[in-house]
Computed example of a mutant assay.
Amino acid sequence: MMDIADTDLAPDPWFRALVVDDNPAFRALLCRQLARIGATVRDAGDASVFLSALHLTERPFDLAVIDIGLPGLQGDKIISWLRSSDDAHLRGLPIIVVSGGDTAGTEFAAAAPRVLFLQKPFRQERLVAAVNQLLRGGLAH
Rank of each mutant, 00 (worst) to 15 (best):
M1K: 09
D3G: 13
A5I: 11
T7N: 03
D8M: 11
D8E: 13
P11D: 11
W14C: 15
F15W: 00
F15E: 08
F15H: 07
V19I: 13
D21F: 01
D22Y: 01
N23K: 11
N23L: 10
N23C: 09
P24H: 06
A25N: 12
F26P: 03
F26Y: 09
A28I: 09
L29T: 11
C31E: 10
L34H: 05
A35F: 10
A35D: 13
R36P: 03
R36F: 12
I37E: 05
G38D: 04
A39L: 00
D43Y: 06
G45T: 12
A47H: 00
V49R: 04
V49Q: 04
L54M: 07
L54T: 01
L56D: 14
L56A: 15
T57R: 05
T57N: 02
T57G: 04
E58I: 06
E58P: 07
R59L: 14
F61M: 01
F61G: 03
F61Q: 00
L63V: 00
A64C: 09
V65K: 04
D67V: 04
D67Y: 03
I68E: 03
I68Q: 04
G69R: 15
L70K: 05
L70N: 04
P71D: 12
G72T: 02
L73G: 09
D76I: 04
D76K: 09
I79K: 02
S80A: 15
L82A: 05
R83E: 03
S84Y: 07
S85G: 03
D87E: 11
D87R: 00
D87Q: 03
A88Y: 00
L90F: 02
L90K: 00
L93H: 02
I95S: 09
I95M: 04
I95E: 02
S99T: 14
G100Y: 15
G100W: 15
G100I: 13
T103Q: 14
T103K: 11
T103Y: 12
A104M: 11
A104E: 14
G105H: 06
G105M: 10
T106D: 14
F108N: 09
A109R: 06
A109Q: 08
A110H: 13
P113N: 11
R114P: 01
V115I: 08
V115L: 06
L118Y: 10
L118N: 09
L118Q: 08
Q119H: 14
P121C: 12
P121D: 12
P121E: 13
F122H: 07
F122R: 00
F122P: 02
R123Y: 15
Q124N: 09
Q124T: 12
R126I: 07
L127I: 07
V128Y: 12
A129S: 13
A129I: 12
A129K: 11
A129T: 09
V131W: 01
N132K: 08
N132T: 01
N132W: 06
Q133E: 13
R136N: 12
R136E: 14
G138N: 04
L139M: 06
L139N: 09
L139W: 00
H141W: 00
H141P: 13
